[in-house]
Amino acid sequence: RDEDEKEKIKEALKRGNEDKAKEIAKRANVSPEEYERLRKEAE
């Protein structure tokens, strides 16, 4: 379940949809550090 959320965040970031990614991260309680890591992976 947690991994699904992280995949959704990465997908949103790949599409350049940072607002959606942040919204998912907030809902999934993803830490800022984890969010940054996902953002780097998505580049």
Score class of each variant (00 low, 15 high):
E36I: 05
K6N: 09
E41L: 07
D4F: 09
D4R: 12
I24A: 04
Y35E: 01
E5C: 06
I9Y: 01
N17A: 09
K20Q: 14
Y35M: 08
A25C: 04
L13I: 11
E41N: 04
E41I: 06
E34N: 03
K8S: 10
E7V: 12
E34D: 09
V30G: 00
N29S: 07
E34V: 06
R15A: 15
G16E: 03
K26T: 10
E23K: 06
K8C: 06
D2T: 11
E36K: 04
Y35S: 01
P32C: 08
Y35D: 01
I24C: 04
E34W: 02
R27M: 13
L38C: 02
K40D: 09
K26Q: 12
K10D: 01
D19R: 12
K14V: 07
R15T: 12
K10L: 10
E43Y: 14
I24Y: 06
E41D: 07
D4I: 12
K6T: 09
E43K: 09
A21M: 01
K20T: 11
L13D: 00
Y35C: 00
A25W: 00
R39Q: 08
K20F: 12
R37M: 10
L13Y: 03
L38K: 01
R1A: 14
E23H: 05
N29R: 06
K6W: 15
R37D: 08
A21W: 01
E36Q: 06
R37K: 11
K14M: 11
D19W: 11
R15V: 13
K20R: 12
N17V: 03
K14S: 06
E3S: 10
A25G: 03
R1C: 09
D2V: 14
K14A: 08
K40V: 12
E23P: 00
E7I: 13
V30R: 01
E36C: 04
N29V: 02
A42V: 15
N17T: 04
N17H: 13
I9A: 01
K10W: 04
L38Q: 01
A28Y: 15
D4Y: 12
E23I: 06
K22G: 04
G16Q: 04
K10E: 02
A21P: 00
I9N: 01
A21I: 01
K22C: 05
K40I: 14
Y35L: 08
R39C: 05
E11G: 06
E5I: 15
N17G: 03
R1W: 13
E41S: 04
P32S: 10
E41V: 05
K14C: 04
E34C: 00
E43Q: 13
N17D: 15
A25P: 02
G16T: 02
E7N: 12
A12M: 10
R37I: 11
N29D: 09
E33T: 08
N29K: 08
E18K: 07
V30T: 04
E3F: 11
E43D: 09
K6I: 15
E5S: 13
S31A: 08
D2R: 08
K6S: 09
E33S: 08
A21Y: 00
P32I: 11
R1E: 13
E23Y: 05
P32A: 13
L13N: 00
D19F: 10
E41R: 04
N17Y: 10
E33L: 08
K14I: 10
D2S: 09
P32H: 10
L38H: 01
K6R: 15
E5A: 15
D19Y: 09
R27W: 10
E33K: 07
R37Y: 08
K10Y: 05
A42N: 05
A21Q: 00
K22L: 13
V30K: 02
E5Y: 15
Y35P: 00
V30I: 15
R39H: 05
E7W: 15
R15I: 11
E5D: 13
R27Q: 13
K6D: 04
R37A: 11
K10A: 03
E41W: 05
E11F: 05
D19P: 09
R37V: 09
R1D: 14
E3Y: 11
D19N: 11
K8H: 08
E5L: 15
E5T: 15
A12D: 02
E3C: 05
R1H: 14
E18Y: 15
E36P: 00
R37S: 09
K22I: 10
R1L: 13
D2W: 14
S31W: 03
R1S: 14
G16I: 01
D2G: 12
A28N: 13
E7Y: 12
S31Y: 04
K6A: 09
R1P: 14
Y35T: 01
D19H: 12
E7H: 12
R15S: 15
E11W: 06
E34I: 05
R15L: 14
E34T: 05
K26G: 07
G16Y: 03
R1M: 13
E41K: 03
E33W: 07
E36W: 03
L38P: 00
K10T: 04
N17I: 03
E33I: 07
R27E: 12
G16L: 03
E34R: 00
E33Q: 09
E43V: 11
R37Q: 12
Y35F: 15
E11S: 09
P32E: 13
K10M: 07
G16D: 03
Y35R: 01
K14W: 07
E23G: 04
L13R: 00
D4W: 13
D4H: 11
D4C: 11
S31P: 10
N29L: 05
R39G: 03
R1N: 14
E5F: 15
E11T: 08
K8T: 06
K6V: 10
E43C: 07
P32D: 14
D4L: 13
R39T: 06
R27P: 02
V30E: 01
K26L: 15
K26A: 11
E3I: 08
E11K: 07
R27T: 10
A42M: 08
R39S: 08
E5H: 15
K40N: 10
E7R: 14
K20V: 15
D2L: 15
R15Q: 15
R27L: 15
K26E: 13
E3K: 10
E7D: 11
A12Q: 09
P32Q: 11
Y35W: 08
R37N: 10
